[in-house]
């Protein structure tokens, strides 16, 4: 890959956040770090879009927020997936798989027409 890391593709950030919050509630910093770690540093979440996205998802009722204590006993805002967020995540995952599968098919085609 020419670029060592990529900004998260527009439109996929919401899905990645929901997915990251699936196992346990987490604060914004945690979300950004986990996405980066799981993607082996390839995906890098732009902080300037992370928090607006979190607040947007909160507004849509897909996640809720609550103040709590961080690992090192600091006050931090934790986000938790709601039931509706859960089903939203399933929908978005399905959509994404269909989409990326289709893109793969196109890229895998060897230039000969038909099959």
């Amino acid at each position: 890959m020419a670029q060592s890391n990529a900004d998260v593709l527009q439109g996929t950030l919401d899905m990645l956040i929901l997915k990251t919050l699936l196992p346990e509630p987490m604060h914004g910093w945690g979300v950004s770090q986990r996405i980066q770690a799981i993607s082996k540093d390839i995906l890098r979440v732009n902080q300037g879009s992370l928090y607006p996205a979190l607040h947007r998802l909160d507004g849509r009722g897909w996640i809720t927020s609550q103040w709590g204590k961080s690992e090192r006993n600091r006050r931090a805002k934790f986000y938790r997936l709601t039931d509706r967020g859960h089903s939203q995540l399933q929908t978005e995952e399905e959509c994404w798989r269909r989409f990326s599968g289709a893109v793969d098919l196109v890229l895998a085609a060897d230039g000969r027409a038909g099959s």
């Binding site: 902080q47 300037g48 879009s49 928090y51 607006p52 996205a53 607040h55 947007r56 909160d58």
Partner: peptide, 17 residues
């Protein structure tokens, strides 16, 4: 620097809510 403009980000978050 990595955060990329705290004020701009706050503006955007306010917009979202």
């Amino acid at each position: 620097l990595e955060f990329g403009g705290v004020e701009r980000f706050k503006e955007r978050t306010r917009e979202a809510q």
